[in-house]
Amino acid sequence: MSTEVASPPTSNTPTTQILPLELIEKCIGSRIWICMKNEKEFVGTLLGFDTYVNIFLKDVIEYENTPEGTKQIKLEYILLNGNHVCLVIYRSSVIIID
């Protein structure tokens, strides 16, 4: 009985599994939203990334959340260090709930 319970997950995994970085790769060319560990966010078109999740972006807006409000900075091309990247979100998949 216990062996039957254990077997289904192993048979399922090879067909359905997708690596995290493959998911990011599918976003190449589209607008993404990146949240950093600190109060910073970036929105831009994903051009590339590497295994450290250093991210190469085009037509970027940097949002910096400060106590005085959100500061926006526009940048054309950036190579963002992956060290402080927390969240990478495909832009049109966002549903904001109040």
Binding site: L21, D50, Y77, L79
Partner: peptide, 13 residues
């Protein structure tokens, strides 16, 4: 293959 492409992107930058 993906990582080599992406390193290229970074290198191009």
């Amino acid at each position: 293959a993906a990582t080599s492409n992406n390193n290229n992107a970074q290198f191009n930058f």
